[in-house]
Amino acid sequence: MKRLIAHSALALCLSPLAVHAGSAHPQAERNYDTYCVQCHGVHRNGKGINAAHMSVQPRDHTDSKAMSDVPDDEMFKAIKEGGLAVNKSILMPVWGKVLSDAEIHELVAYLRETCKCGK
């Protein structure tokens, strides 16, 4: 049994799913991994698989300084209503019809955790 647990833990560590394991917001982390990683990247640094072809680069969520300039309500609005709603790029889509307000609020908290910056 111990060996099984050790193997499972090892597999979890090696898995790309576990890059940001240990979040205080596991559901938001799951949503990020499902919806945001395609552009913002596995490492949350704005270098997702879609980023290379984009005219405007996705935000680097690990950039403490840049992220600390964005208030929570603006971040919420950008996720819910898309980039245009906060005078940013159309390439940031509208997620308000996929995620609930509660899920978006939790994503904002998760982004604060990711950037290690409060607001």
Binding site: Q38, C39, N50, H53, M54, S55, S89, I90, L91
Partner: peptide, 19 residues
Amino acid sequence: KLRGCAACHQDAPGKGGMS
């Protein structure tokens, strides 16, 4: 540019997103 579909989809081989 205007609706952002190319962020995730290609409308020609190698031109656009990959998710």
